[in-house]
Design a protein around this nucleic acid. Structure first.
Lengths: 355, 355
DNA sequence: AGACGTATTGCATTCGAATGCAAACCGCAA
DNA sequence: TTGCGGTTTGCATTCGAATGCAATACGTCT
């Protein structure tokens, strides 16, 4: 009775019937029947390293091919408790930095047999529901390139879903992190600007809740203080192009004492800044105003900008993130890891001697 | 024996134990036990529109909350034959147009309870394996914003996976398509340029295998012929920034007879073109050379470019694509649908009177 | 109270693949 | 031939939720 799955179906049409049996996809039972073996045998033939004789494997694979059988990932996930899905969270506001990361992550993940369940997150509420979704789908791990609250992270921990943060972290929690530390390059950049004679600096921050942006500006500030630069004006941006232009206006309300060098927490704002400087304030970059950014996004190197910026080694960072999540999908209880990468200065033409 | 799932487990610790029972997630059985009802009752409480009394629903939901129970999407998918996953295929080469589409699609899909299984596709071989993957995961549908071969499409058809093409289609197959037809805008644009006195045109094509790029250039050519413009030079690009610059060089090998107006099959190439014109050929845009593009990507409106371009109503197109795929996930056997959207001219400052 | 109709609930089975265990098989040596 | 060790194979069960069907509870009317 319980064993009766094999051939107590209503008398079939031809045994070697069409690939799609009555519109349904072929199952391991169909293959087993056609090959004249048990369902378990079929299953084993698709599991690398299982104990199967050559003869058997051959017969099964032939039958499988004939029926166009592919193991059902859903059923497999149910029994193995591994979905082979990784949730990837990216911020939706179009930062042009995220897509690059996202595509790289996707490629790397697929190399190790993991699929991307994509979520865009724009607010903490979004993140809330994303976590529920990810949980429902039994994801094997989660890579977050967007903001998560501590409570949300703790929830993931409790549910033992491995998490890797991409370019963000908590100061008061140990987590898996892939991170780019631009310290050395910030120093070099600031030294360079100071040597160029800049004494009045403008800094454009990222959104308040963003660690990376905050950290970048902090490093710049510290470096400037080391060089005894006193005139530092900071204004708030939100990583978007428009906010870069607006921030520049704010920095230049008193034209006489405006900064001669501006460092933006990301490239996108730097571009906004350059455009605003040229087209509205009618300043020459870099002769009248030096501008630098962070990230090294593709368009920062377009001929119109040639921005000097501190680039992240995105490719290697994505590889690292995937390696970390894959390892933890395999063996969930590994200790947290923190991989820090160096940045690199991308020499553009957006900085020069102070006017 | 067969019924023995309910309480023949080894004697449990406390019945109202921790949310994660021995590290495992709570199942509907756990909830049922805690609430003192059957598993089916729990299932029904999570199915909208099922027949459940208020009393029961209350008890179950309370128990579920206590155990932090969420239905397991994998198990549900197995039995219902619906995964609630939609495969989204985008081209990986960084076109800056895809990310925008991708994020929009993701948002819209999540509104109707569908999740995105993301795949990047750079070659036909990629597509091959993507289709296998999608099939393994029993996706409820597939939205393709990248190239698929006819054979691949036919395979999806045979497996009765609903497919919606985004901005591409076959001329010899009926498919579900969401598409932007820029005909009217192309006419208007060409008329405008001709009125501006342009007589020598350069056209920069997209990659050979791309329908949309081809179609755009075809429409432009036809419009130009209608206006009796004879001097049309076409060169090949591949949608990237760099190829735009290279194409411009090609068009200007004989400076004396170079085009005075250039239309590019997408914005990205138009930007490359503008930059090349300004920084290498030292031409003024738009006074020496008019340039126009297609897409209306965000950066085409940056102050450095202010490109005149034909925009796609991406938002509405994504909504349409999602509506189509959602409907077909629900009822697979609907006839194919073809939704065509109008473009819109985005007035920039990149075109002017012929020199 | 009894009869009937409707709204709830539970039982048992199902989806498709993986796997522990036992049975069957093979080869080889005694 | 028998016996032993190792390899293949199959049996039966499992994962977690959904659902057709039968059984029960509940309410209403006579």
């Amino acid at each position: 009775m319980a064993s009766g799955r094999q051939k107590d179906n209503p008398p079939d049409e031809a045994p070697n019937s069409l690939p799609l049996i009555r519109g349904r996809r072929a199952t391991s039972y169909d293959v087993a029947r056609l090959a004249g073996v048990s369902q378990s045998a079929v299953s084993r033939c698709f599991k690398p390293g299982a104990s199967v004789s050559g003869k058997m494997r051959e017969r099964v694979l032939k039958a499988a091919e004939e029926l166009e059988y592919q193991p059902n990932a859903i059923a497999r996930g149910l029994i193995t408790q591994r979905s082979n899905l990784v949730a990837v969270l990216v911020s939706g506001r179009l930062n042009l930095y995220y897509p690059e990361v996202l595509f790289r992550l996707t490629d790397e993940l697929s190399k190790v047999g993991l699929r991307v369940l994509l979520f865009t997150v724009d607010s903490e509420d979004d993140a809330e529901s994303v976590i529920e979704q990810a949980w429902q789908f039994q994801v094997d791990g989660l890579i977050s390139a967007s903001h998560l609250s501590r409570a949300q992270y703790d929830l993931l921990q409790k549910r033992s879903i491995p998490v890797v943060f991409f370019n963000r972290y908590f100061t008061d929690r140990s987590t898996n992190v892939v991170y780019c530390d631009p310290r050395a390059q910030v120093d070099a950049l600031v030294e360079r600007l100071v040597e160029f004679g800049h004494r009045r600096f403008g800094l454009i921050r990222g959104p308040k809740d963003n660690m990376v942006g905050f950290e970048r500006i902090r490093l710049v500030t510290e470096a400037l203080q080391r060089y005894r630069v006193a005139e530092i004006r900071e204004v708030q941006g939100d990583f978007t192009y428009d906010s870069g232009g607006a921030a520049l206006q704010e920095l230049c309300v008193h034209p006489a004492t405006r900064p001669t060098a501006i460092i933006c927490a990301n490239d996108m704002m730097a571009l906004g800044c350059m455009d605003e400087a040229r087209s509205v304030l009618e300043l020459n970059i870099p002769d009248d105003l030096s501008i630098a950014g962070f990230d090294g996004i593709g368009m920062s190197q377009f001929a119109s900008y040639e921005l000097t910026t501190i680039r992240q080694p995105i490719g290697r960072m994505c590889q690292a993130a995937v390696a970390m999540i894959a390892a933890r999908a395999e063996l969930p209880d590994q200790s947290n890891e923190r991989r820090v990468f160096e940045g690199a200065i991308l020499e553009g033409r957006s900085i020069a001697k102070a006017p």
